[in-house]
Design a protein around this nucleic acid. Structure first.
Lengths: 340, 340
DNA sequence: TTGTATGCGTTATCAC
DNA sequence: GTGATAACGCATACAA
């Protein structure tokens, strides 16, 4: 059989031959290392002529450090997708490839994800650290790769963390309600097993306490999960109270969605019938009725910190086992809080 | 130096040795092929004992067909992210890995994406086929891999297409406006270089024609791009008309967002001051004012068709060079259209 | 810096 | 089906 060059992809051997340099030189070129002046051009020309593309599989196999980074997101919702998109962008500029893995809001099956990432020998794992990770701490440690958490705190693991000041933001949002004259304030919490849900609730309570108010009565606490139906059911219960709240503090945007669903069904509007403050700002909130007052996450900063954590960790410098960065949120005041 | 087993990842050789079978047998096991009864168990036990994980890089290097599939999306917006998420899920069930590439709404730099995908030897390329692809047709052909387009039509390439019946949906949406008594109807178009923008506009005009109306006057046609600011500027112009439209037909959800921004700034509301119909349904539309009447895309069906196209193409069956599947959309009627 | 040789871990190809 | 062996394409250690 005659060799048909067009049949096979050209390799660095072909490039080396054509450029009349050694394969090592081509490899050095591909990895951005310096070569003798003049050689760069020769190699570049040969690559262009041959239409050569390095095989990432071969490089990956031979490399000591993988270029893949795993990213687990609970679902492709606005917040997580936004973080993911930024991280993909940031890491690509450093030459890394992000492998997203979503468990589609099914019950988390972390072992599946870990086995998937093991196959790809990912250099690190980025995740929001949802409920249930503690159970798999051993498996995570067995991966022997850096773990980078964003959004949620997670105890008992040596990881880098990128958090937001949930508590402070919750205090600010609640205080805004108080300043606008609200006293019967209810709260929609997230899944209280998650640290974000706890911190936001704690901040809410603290703002109340600072105002000299008692902690919220149990029937003013609803939700208990992150999804729309939690917000729906929770808000329904709150509004059915003999003394319904004049304002609601919501712990994320999906709860808020569910709340709005109820309000719509009951023919109530914001802020005329009930005031509203929510965690999580989305592109649509400015136009929801009079606009929704919301706690905005600094997505760009979160993504940057994730990237920085990864890069420094991957350089293998001497680093503490665990580092935490916290970012502040902004309260975007719109029209969903009525002064009473 | 003594060999420390814990230092290196176990390989199929280790598994084969431990299970007392040949490496080929282990490979067959890993790829789901049938083994002599009893051998499966032996291999499974050895794998579990050793904590073995196949190296995808090595497999990918040696395989004749890659397990990677490229996916280009213009941005991580609701529509494209939704399609992506479903495709990731569908393809994972078939053992394929999706590599998303977004150009972040910058000017499309297709060569970057193609070079990235070349390195990974992707088995196929999925993309919405935005404006500007024609210029790179040669480069796309040079990849010698199946191309699967969704959303946009693209002439002059042998590709599989998954489209929606934009024209029919546009007719339906416009007819709804007409049936509700509207005669002064304006349109926000997308980028008219894209087939979706053309089809939606054509459907809009056809519905008008069916009602015996003339084509829209030039000053009733605005937008000309897919982004929020196109909707903003376009709507501003429409409402500044001596005879502003009583209803607006919007070609996607971001245009609609921009339109709502203007309406809000001008203190106008939907549908009291202007009625609205939009392409693209999103989770928030039920709660926008009285709810937004919208054309809903069948995301699940689109994703399924993409997957089917890829799988059949990848099986290498004898197939026509180009296949097209079209899906119908649904008009979700809510409260953004006033009867006049 | 360059050239050469070796190995990464798997799949494909045979003969059995 | 199974077993032995030859690639796959690149990075790297080593000697030059």
């Amino acid at each position: 059989m005659t060799k048909l060059a067009s049949q096979k992809n050209p390799t660095i051997l072909d490039v080396a031959e054509k450029a009349k340099v050694a394969v090592g030189t081509v490899s050095r070129y591909l990895n951005g290392q310096s070569l003798r002046s003049g050689n760069s051009e020769k190699v570049a020309i040969a690559i262009a002529d041959l239409g050569f593309r390095r095989s990432n599989a071969a490089a990956e196999l031979r490399r000591t450090k993988s270029k893949f980074v795993g990213f687990i997101l609970p679902m492709f919702d606005e917040f997580h997708t936004d973080v993911l998109a930024h991280v993909i962008q940031d890491l690509r500029e450093h030459g890394y490839i992000v492998l997203p893995y979503s468990h589609g809001n099914q019950k988390l099956h972390l072992p599946d994800a870990l086995s998937y990432f093991s196959e790809h020998r990912v250099a690190a794992l980025i995740t929001s650290g949802d409920t249930g990770y503690e159970k798999h701490a051993a498996a995570l440690r067995a991966l022997k790769i850096p773990l980078i958490l964003y959004s949620n705190e997670l105890q008992g693991l040596d990881v880098d963390r990128v958090l937001v000041n949930d508590r402070a933001a919750a205090i600010g949002a609640t205080r805004h309600l108080i300043e606008m004259g609200h006293r019967r304030i209810a709260v929609l919490t997230g899944n209280m097993a998650d640290s974000t849900a706890q911190s936001r609730f704690a901040g809410f309570c603290e703002a109340l306490a600072q105002d000299g108010q008692p902690p919220p009565a149990p029937n003013r606490i609803a939700g208990g999960g992150w999804l729309q139906h939690h917000g729906y059911l929770g808000t329904k219960a709150l509004l059915d109270l003999p003394e319904p709240p004049t304002a609601i503090f919501s712990s994320n945007y999906m709860l808020t969605l569910g709340a709005f669903q109820v309000l719509r069904e009951m023919g109530l509007s914001v802020p005329e019938n009930v005031s509203f403050v929510t965690f999580g700002d989305i592109a649509h909130y400015p136009f929801y009725g009079g606009g929704v007052t919301a706690v905005q996450f600094p997505i760009q900063s979160i993504a940057n910190s994730i990237t920085e954590h990864f890069i420094s960790r991957h350089q293998g410098k001497d680093l503490p086992l665990s580092r935490t960065i916290s970012h502040d949120c902004s309260l975007i005041i719109r029209g969903s809080v009525r002064r009473i």
